[in-house]
């Protein structure tokens, strides 16, 4: 994946080489494994490029209202006067002008650029929140099950299997409208915050299993290590074992799985919005925009192009960064 994997690997080999450690100790003072991973990450061009891109996207999402102000156009503003009689934007490439950088939506005549910025905000928020919640659930259950074992482990495993056996798409399709109906009735105007909340909840219910399994496996492997036994032999309690001894050693795989879960949730959100169970048209989102744009695939390709490229770039950057992060944190696995 990375452009210069050799350097990272070689460096890691040398650092972990017991023979070389005296040399390393002489030259470098007190570099923690985390700092070494950071150095490797910084030396990896893919990681730097994708990381910068991600930061850029996040800043865009965060600063959406500010951009709206500077840009001077709101996400719900309609520019019917710039459409022709058939509702198609006037001008070239879907109505790209100095005022409307990515052109206008056919039909309603809303500005695509500002809607994309808000869509990015929605997508990132949903994906990050869902990833955070699933990671929390997964780490908690995985650590406890792995470390304590016994009946707790059996129960957690059973629930994991049960969750994995449930078909995600069908339940999401069935559950989302049902919940909406339950809260808002037939005619109620669904608030965008509610739609977002339901999506996050659905992701959280289904998304924690892989993290839980990963963490459980890691903890079981660590549990038998002698430094854990040393802490036990000194009389350490459960809290110390989990938070001081075990977790610091597994946050690397957790971080990697987190960074790879985020793009998954972005595409899932788009997919759900696409099949109509996600967000309503009110809330700008990638999936919804692509769904709407498909009718104009032949007449106004620019409408499909901009959201498509945006979501592709975002997911690609996340995946590249996740892989680079994995290489940096665990250099031996990349060979």
């Amino acid at each position: 994946m990375s452009l210069s994997p050799v350097e990272g690997v070689a460096l890691a080999e040398i650092e972990s080489d017991p023979d070389a450690s005296t040399t390393a100790a002489r030259g470098v003072v007190g570099r923690s494994p985390g700092q070494l991973a950071w150095l490797r990450l910084r030396g990896d061009r893919t990681a730097v490029v994708s990381g910068v891109l991600l930061v850029f996207f996040m800043v865009l999402g965060l600063a959406a209202p500010l951009i709206e102000m500077l840009y001077g156009v709101g996400p719900r503003e309609q520019f019917q006067n710039l459409l022709d009689g058939n509702g198609m934007p006037l001008g070239y490439a879907g109505g790209v002008t100095g005022d409307h950088w990515f052109g206008l939506e056919p039909g309603l005549g809303r500005d695509i650029f500002v809607r994309l910025i808000y869509g990015l905000r929605t997508s990132l928020f949903i994906a990050l929140a869902a990833a955070l919640i699933t990671a929390t659930i997964g780490v908690t259950l995985g650590t406890l099950a792995g470390y304590l074992g016994g009946w707790l482990d059996a129960v957690v495993n059973w629930i994991t299997d049960l969750t994995l056996a449930m078909p995600f798409l069908i339940i999401a399709l069935a559950l989302t409208p049902a919940i909406t109906l339950r809260f808002y009735g037939e005619r109620g105007q669904v608030s965008s915050a509610f739609g977002v909340g339901v999506l996050i909840a659905v992701f959280a219910i289904f998304g924690w299993t892989s993290t839980a399994r990963l963490v459980r496996g890691q903890v079981i492997a660590l549990r038998e290590r002698e430094f854990v036994e040393a802490a036990k032999a000194s009389g350490a309690g459960l809290g110390h074992m989990l938070f001081r001894q075990l977790l610091p050693n597994i946050w690397a795989p957790i971080l990697v799985s987190f960074s790879l879960a985020v793009p998954q949730f972005i595409t899932s959100e788009a997919a759900l919005s696409f099949i109509g169970v996600g967000l309503s048209d009110e809330t700008p989102s990638f999936g919804r925009m692509i769904y709407d744009s498909l009718d104009y695939l032949q007449t106004d390709p620019a409408y499909v192009f901009f959201p498509g490229v945006m979501i592709f770039a975002l997911v690609f950057a996340f995946n590249l960064f996740g892989d680079a992060l994995r290489d940096a944190l665990d250099p031996k696995s990349s060979r």
Binding site: P33, E226, F227, N249
Partner: peptide, 17 residues
């Protein structure tokens, strides 16, 4: 009552100073 372990690579937590 304390213990010293065999493997000097496994017996120290790599994330701790």
């Amino acid at each position: 009552l304390q213990i010293i372990f065999q493997d000097p690579y496994a017996s120290l937590n790599p994330r701790h100073t």
